[in-house]
Design a protein around this nucleic acid. Structure first.
Lengths: 342, 342
DNA sequence: CTGAAAGCGCTTACAG
DNA sequence: CTGAAAGCGCTTACAG
């Protein structure tokens, strides 16, 4: 079998307690003994057994990350931010996705008991948030990311989706657009609802009528909405999609249908995923620092005093930034001649 | 504190052994007792302590995934494939990236001891593969992904990069291109070397001269190469980049410099990341089923008999598929009139 | 500074 | 079918 602390102790002629202390950098070990233990451990290629260590020390050196999904640019960016900080602190990451099924979230959370020291959870569903507390391992520090929060709930860090959507609407209105359609996200999704609210609030302030197409955040639904727009008897001046993926899908459908962006219809998204910079025309969007969201979440989880105890329920908010690209050039542009490129 | 197996035992009026058996679905528990235990466990919201369970059972229900990085479309896709299978089997994923630093790979591997039942490792470096065995936790099943393999090394699953690059070259040659430049990947990277080898082999077979630009797989290096091409006294007919990100960067630089793709220069990449379908013009590439690579790797790790023992060292190979898009339209196309779209 | 021993929360032969 | 007990590999008061 594998080499254990006993093997090291025997070989170094000390007790396992001393080996443990030496390896963990405790001060009360004679310098000479420490060196001997370390060298023996090295020779034997000893590596402490994690489960044993965490069972007795009650610490796992691991942070659990529970997400709706692992797939796509958004989660990839989020993980990058979390991973960066985890690595700095020498922590491991146990990731678990519940694949968009809110029902499986509880199981994922419960499975974290005894595996992690703290939990990062993204739970963007509007329904079923009450039961969340029940599934949370007892007395486990937790920070919510981009999730609806109760006043007495856990610490939380999110994006100002409402303010961001309003800022985008102001940009579109300033560019002279009056008829602005919105591609909404999933009904049950918190971010989606907040963005929709920003849209309707801005329109109401301008005395204009909302015009909403249903969507579910993925490219295909944006593509469908684009197809519907092409068929529609009248067309909007601009389309604001609740996220970039839908904006891209919509833009794709429009260009396939011979509708020019931004000359015929301006398009804007939300998130600023890497793709948005590359498409043609480049997409105007609200930049969300997704990696930063993850980094801030894990840092605040690790902060001292950040226990599940009541009291200092901090709720941070990240403010997205307007990024104007070609897809929303003002209408006053010289109309383009028919393009000869495909 | 948290509720333990003892609490359940006491409340259900049985021994902890019986609770353990009931919870683990062993057959030798009276039906009535089983029901009682399960119901008590449920009432108490009991969830087994993972470290304790794995210390005594010697199983962790967790697979370790050690990657060069967590960031970007490639790893996101890979994780998706792995996660899908893991979830099917009720396994957790402990992910660890060594951030492109081969030196840190050893530490990442050693830290897996006692945390995982098996290991998925991507180690695309040509140097330092010998020491890999030393860092591997003793008698731990492991499957290598996209890594150079020794004949007596662990099981491995990879992509036929050499064959894929040759296939792409044949496509470009058939399209009538004679002067074909190559944007290479990092010198120390196994995939990059294999693709380069496919390029040079195909050229040699056609009696043509190689023309290689250095790169490191990221978009910026492709952009630099594109800039160099624009300045060059003569230009190639086509550019074959060792991966899509570089191809995209190159294409971007060319279009900024007024060089038309594919009319002036054809471009091709490798990987078929999602972005490649969206850019303008869409990128010709070799499709690698990245998620499938991950899925196959974890499945083969989980296969019975897949121990570290010698013998059945299976080495699977995935064959990439040629995807021809606009960026490599044959030269015989009607030359496009100057475009009026930006 | 060091060691013997208890204990972390489970699982699993071993008896019955 | 069930229980008492050993044991998994560590850490950490408690003595000395």
């Amino acid at each position: 079998m594998s080499v254990t602390i006993k093997d090291v102790a025997r070989r170094a002629n000390v007790s396992v307690a001393t080996v443990s202390r030496a390896l963990n950098g405790h001060q009360n070990v004679a310098e000479e003994v420490r060196k001997r233990v370390l060298s023996v451990a090295d020779q034997l290629r000893y590596s402490p057994h994690h489960a044993a260590r965490s069972l007795s020390s009650r610490r796992t050196q691991t942070i659990g990350v529970v997400l709706p999904d692992l797939y796509g640019e958004f989660f990839s960016e989020l993980m990058r931010g979390i991973d960066h900080v985890a690595r700095e602190r020498g922590l491991h990451l146990l990731v678990s996705s519940y694949h968009g099924h809110p029902q499986e979230q509880g199981a994922a959370l419960r499975a974290m008991r005894g595996r992690v020291d703290g939990l990062l959870l993204m739970s963007p569903f509007l329904e079923g948030q009450e039961s969340l507390a029940d599934d949370m391992p007892a007395s486990m520090p937790v920070v919510l990311m981009g999730s609806p929060v109760a006043a007495d709930g856990p610490a939380s860090i999110g994006v100002d989706n409402h303010g961001g959507a309003k800022a985008m609407m102001e940009h579109l209105l300033e560019a002279g657009h009056r008829s602005i359609a919105f591609l909404s996200g999933p009904d049950d999704n918190f971010d989606a609802r907040e963005r929709l609210r920003g849209y309707t609030d801005a329109l109401a302030a301008a005395g204009l009528e909302p015009w909403v197409f249903p969507g579910d955040f993925d490219e295909a639904s944006g593509h469908r909405a684009g197809g519907a727009l092409i068929q529609a008897p009248r067309r909007p001046d601009a389309v604001f999609a609740a996220n970039d993926m839908m904006a891209l899908g919509c833009m794709f459908a429009l260009s396939q249908g011979g509708v020019r962006v931004p000359d015929d219809i301006a398009i804007a998204g939300f998130d600023d995923i890497p793709l948005s910079r590359y498409v043609h025309p480049a997409l105007t969007t609200m930049r969300v620092e997704i990696a930063e969201l993850g980094a801030r979440a894990i840092r605040s989880l690790l902060e001292p005093g950040q226990e599940t105890a009541e009291g200092s329920r901090l709720q941070e908010l990240l403010f997205p930034e307007l990024v104007v690209r070609q897809s929303s050039r003002p209408r006053t542009d010289t109309p383009a001649a028919p393009s000869t490129t495909s």
